[in-house]
């Protein structure tokens, strides 16, 4: 449906905005490497099924694109010259292990099929995605204010989440037996994390 497509497009746009920012400004200052690495982990654990689930060309292609773009961002942040010298690890100080560990436990404990390692990995990726933005939000708070493109990037990520939430309501109403408790709860948690950011984003845009 169109709402979900809008969600996917704003998600993809967020990658391009971030790549554009770090290529143009030659700087990754204010960008959380931890969040970006968590996203690589999210996509690699969620899209293992790319090898056996061929739902549509769209789905398979988007999976490859999401993995490739997230790996590319981490690559530029770690290896890019001069980008790698502009990274501030002292500001990127969120204790990310405390995000990954509970998500692993939750993924093993609560999933759609306790006998399937793929379902565990998939559930893990859903839980981790919900909280993966936290190191980035923490960094924005420590910095005081985010650069324009960085805030557009975070805004697009939050927008993607909002589109998906609306898409779930729409699917629940139009598709018989459509039920996705894990995804809905995690998605709602993820959206809540953006509320404070959204508030400040809109406020600063009004000021401009």
């Amino acid at each position: 449906n169109a709402i979900r497509l809008a969600g996917d497009m704003s998600h993809m746009a967020s990658f391009f905005v971030l790549l554009f920012k770090i290529n143009k400004s030659k700087s990754v200052a204010g960008i959380s490497l931890k969040t970006q690495e968590l996203y690589v982990l999210v996509f690699c654990t969620r899209y293992v099924d790319i090898f056996w689930n061929h739902l549509s060309l769209y789905n398979s292609l988007m999976k490859v694109i999401f993995i490739a773009l997230s790996v590319m961002i981490v690559y530029v942040m770690r290896r890019g010259v001069p980008q790698r010298s502009t990274y501030n690890p002292e500001l990127d100080s969120f204790p990310h292990h405390w995000l990954v560990l509970p998500c692993v436990l939750l993924g093993v404990a609560i999933n759609q099929d306790p006998t399937s390692p793929f379902e565990m990995a998939w559930a893990f990726s859903i839980y981790l995605e919900a909280v993966a933005i936290m190191p980035q939000l923490h960094m924005v708070q420590k910095h005081g204010e985010a650069e324009n493109l960085t805030s557009h990037y975070i805004f697009l990520l939050g927008l993607y989440r909002v589109f998906y939430l609306v898409n779930w309501v729409y699917r629940y109403m139009t598709e018989d037996g459509y039920w996705q408790a894990i995804v809905w709860v995690s998605g709602a948690v993820q959206a809540v994390l953006y509320l404070d950011f959204f508030y400040n984003y809109v406020k600063s845009k009004q000021k401009d």
Partner: peptide, 10 residues
């Protein structure tokens, strides 16, 4: 989705 149903969202 029922268990093991292909995941159709990203």
């Amino acid at each position: 989705a029922t268990p093991n149903e292909p995941k159709d969202e990203l």
